[in-house]
């Protein structure tokens, strides 16, 4: 009973924080939806993706099998193989604020700040179009 009341109180607090703008609204986004956008280099991203830019987003997926250990980023894919994966929309670059990667084949549920748009490397190759900055793994 006490536990239930506590949970209700927490929920109410969350609602108050959210409505007052103190707690961010969390958008649950499907990796499949991101993977299946129609996008070629130079295209505009769909409006619904651009609307997520800067928002707090929840995503589930797998570390791409080439993930290096001890890095501060990895690519999230829709399945643990990622071997047929070659389109930019098939990856979400996950940036870890505090900590580094340890490869796991298990499904990951992540929450962080989403960013959308082409990001280039020093050779002008597009490295990512979707990014998620998380606190830690």
């Amino acid at each position: 009973m006490v536990k239930t009341q506590l949970l209700h109180a927490c929920g109410l607090l969350g609602l108050v924080l959210c409505s007052s703008g103190l707690a961010p609204e969390v958008h649950e986004v499907s990796m499949l939806r991101l993977n299946n956008i129609e996008f070629e280099v130079g295209d505009e991203l769909p409006d619904w993706v651009l609307a997520l830019d800067g928002e707090t987003v929840q995503l589930s997926g797998y570390m791409q099998s080439e993930t290096l250990e001890g890095e501060s980023w990895f690519d999230l894919t829709n399945d643990s193989c990622g071997c047929g994966t070659s389109k930019l929309q098939h990856f979400v670059r996950v940036i870890i604020e505090d900590g580094t990667t340890t490869f796991t084949p298990s499904e990951l549920e992540l929450e962080g700040v989403f960013s959308a748009g082409e990001e280039f490397d020093e050779d002008e190759f597009i490295e990512s179009i979707f990014r998620l900055t998380i606190d830690s793994l």
Binding site: V41, Q64, E66, D75, G82, T85, S86, K87, L88, F91, D121, D123, F125, I126, E127, S128
Partner: peptide, 18 residues
């Protein structure tokens, strides 16, 4: 040579572009 290398061993998103 650079693109051959990147297409083979670059980051996954970069390989097809290279």
């Amino acid at each position: 040579e650079k693109y051959l290398k990147l297409a083979r061993t670059g980051r996954a998103a970069v390989r097809p572009q290279a």
